[in-house]
Design a protein around this nucleic acid. Structure first.
Length: 221
DNA sequence: CACCAGGCAAGTA
DNA sequence: TACTTGCATGGT
């Protein structure tokens, strides 16, 4: 079986298992962006607490966030962990939004995806995964997001080397799949979901994983 | 108790 | 360039 066929079959399998993923869980593009930074190496449940702190104080708008100083912001997002660096990172993101679109995210729809990606990467605290998550889930661009889970699953299935570069791993998908925003959104969400349930680092439960059939080496050519 | 979570940047050699 | 370390809370 070709890699293209395999990646498509895996997607369909996960679609059967999870249906609508509900990703990204946020009310606005701004909330997606904040969440993308807050969730860096952090459990989503902790990010939710930080988001709730901001929401209940009506601070989840560009204008309101701009009024907060660094210490205030840090205190509000404390439950998300790494709160001091993340406060800096959020401020850097807000500063970029201010200069690129005056905080009006809708205006970014005119921008070229590759240029946007480069600008996002220039923000201190926004790396490749965060940039791509913002592009895909906040700005609706056809960018495939990969992460440690993606690497773990697809290397364990013999479809990628264990040590693979972010963009190499990303190309694996973008070279084989159509540029479909909806599909990209769901695919990444499914990968995270399946990894959380069956693909833990030290306690993987591969026997019950819905992707187990794809472990059969004979499945690929 | 150890280990993990929807990464990234800065420091070292 | 190739490793290493700091960042931190909260759940299992």
């Amino acid at each position: 079986m070709s890699r293209k066929a395999a990646l498509t079959a895996i997607y369909q399998t996960l679609q059967q298992v999870f249906g609508d993923s509900g990703w990204w869980p946020a009310d606005t593009p701004l909330e997606v962006m904040l969440g993308a930074v807050l969730t860096q190496n952090t459990a989503w449940t902790n990010v939710e607490k930080a988001i709730v702190n901001l929401k209940t104080k009506n601070l989840l708008t560009f204008a309101a966030l701009q009024t907060l100083d660094l210490a205030e912001l840090a205190e509000l997002i404390r439950p998300a962990g790494f709160f001091r660096v993340k406060a800096l990172r959020l401020k850097a993101l807000l500063a970029w939004l201010n200069e690129s679109c005056a905080g009006n995210i809708e205006l970014l729809s005119n921008c070229d995806t590759d240029e946007l990606r480069q600008e996002l990467l220039n923000i201190k605290g926004v790396g490749p995964e965060t940039a791509d998550a913002i592009l895909l889930y906040a700005l609706h661009r056809p960018v495939f997001v990969v992460d440690e889970y993606t690497r773990r699953i697809f290397s364990r299935h013999g479809m990628a080397p264990q040590e693979i570069d972010y963009h190499e791993l990303q190309s694996l998908f973008t070279d084989a799949l159509p540029e479909d925003v909806k599909m990209f959104r769901e695919y990444h969400a499914y990968i995270v979901s399946v990894a959380k349930k069956w693909c833990k680092r030290h306690k993987p439960d591969c026997l019950n994983c819905p992707l187990r059939p794809f472990l059969d080496q004979d499945f690929y050519e």
